[in-house]
Design a binder for these strands. Structure first.
Lengths: 210, 210
DNA sequence: TCAGAACGGTATCAAAAGATACACAAGCAA
DNA sequence: TTGCTTGTGTATCTTTTGATACCGTTCTGA
């Protein structure tokens, strides 16, 4: 079980003691399992989450297509929720937990109060907005200018680097979803890469060579 | 000539008298002409601009391609500059004036101070971040899921609506740049639309019918 | 152990969009 | 006027990607 002491130790980029106290006081820890839906399109956002452990996949959906915005990982918050909560708007995206996840949630109203009191809170928000925006630009650049084979390889290398492991556990379908294309296309490209000895394919797993 | 009184009257979503005073005190009005470069990739951002009149085109460039992020128009600020200024980073994008433009600029350092003093300043920043992010998602959706012919028509309708005019002054090349494609493709599509009696083409001008 | 789901391989076809090339017209400056 | 630049029309060809269909394999739960 996570205690408030843990929280204070963990979120140490919040430097003001007062802010830490408020985080512990107004915040509540909630745990979720893979598949749990944290935010839904059309729902009002009353609480802002900061992920302590795990990951939330945030995406938008329109008919059959979906567009991946970002993952919220440890120490991060969801800027879509932040904006929606701040303006008391409905969410325009979905947030789904992809692995066992602990989240610190607190009432939307705190956001505005903390802005006026705690510089490190402002830094945090600015940092989050900037990171998300950069990420989105990156994805955009990818979709606009790179061929899918390149994007597949970029994704794999990135995933391998993050996991610190040459082996990426992922099905072709999942990979297709991440890149906004179809399974057949991904399978085709992966097979090519395998023939070029750049990767090796297993069921549900892709291994990077070199 | 724009006076400080003008500024106070214009930016009336800044509700605190103190903030208005500071805007007038620390801010300077600068005028630019079409083609002037306000921000350059790689440059440090020491001043934050708020556009009073006109428009700045903000985009990123990589080799031959460019990606349009947004236009900064009256009452708006450039979130890329805002983030860069706040963190004392170099800019990663270009800002070019596309029509005669007046800008209120003030030192980057004010941003953090105002966050702690003026709620309406915080609202303003949040609003800008949200708007830019939504716009980028929209463009992304377009590029990812719409065919170019649809995007061309969307762009034209949008431009016509904004200008409150069925006639859009724009060359095929410019339109191609906005959409991140090539002139030939745009010409082809426009010709099709003309044959379908949806538009009429002139040199440097496109007229929407219906 | 058996059925069904999830996973992956592959072939065929079609559509979308980029690349290239060339022609001509309109506008502009010397 | 002449020559240069900008804008536009159009044809041809190729590449990339998506759509569809069908197959076998592996895994999992009843």
């Amino acid at each position: 079980m996570i205690t408030s002491t843990d929280i204070l130790r963990k979120l140490d980029f919040f430097t003001e003691p007062g802010l830490k106290e408020e985080l512990a006081q107004h915040g509540q820890v909630a745990s979720f399992n893979k598949g749990d839906v944290i935010v839904r399109d059309g729902q009002y956002v009353k609480f802002l989450p900061i992920v302590l452990k795990g990951a939330i996949r945030v995406f938008q959906q329109s008919e059959d297509r979906e567009i991946l915005l970002y993952y919220v990982r440890a120490d991060e918050t969801c800027t879509m929720s932040l904006a929606a909560a701040y303006f008391n708007n409905k969410s325009t995206s979905h947030g789904v937990v992809t692995e066992p996840t602990d989240v610190l949630i607190f009432p939307a109203g705190m956001i505005e109060q903390w802005q006026l009191k705690y510089p490190s809170w402002n830094r945090y928000m600015m940092q989050m907005f900037r990171t998300r925006y950069d990420q989105l630009i990156n994805s955009f650049q990818g979709v606009a200018f790179e061929n899918i084979d390149t994007r597949v390889m970029d994704y794999l290398k990135n995933a391998a680097r993050k996991a610190n492991n040459q082996s990426v556990t992922l099905s072709h379908q999942q990979l297709a979803d991440e890149l906004g294309t179809t399974r057949v296309v991904v399978s085709r490209i992966l097979k090519d890469y395998e023939h070029q000895n750049k990767i090796r394919l297993f069921r549900g797993r892709i291994e990077l060579l070199s």
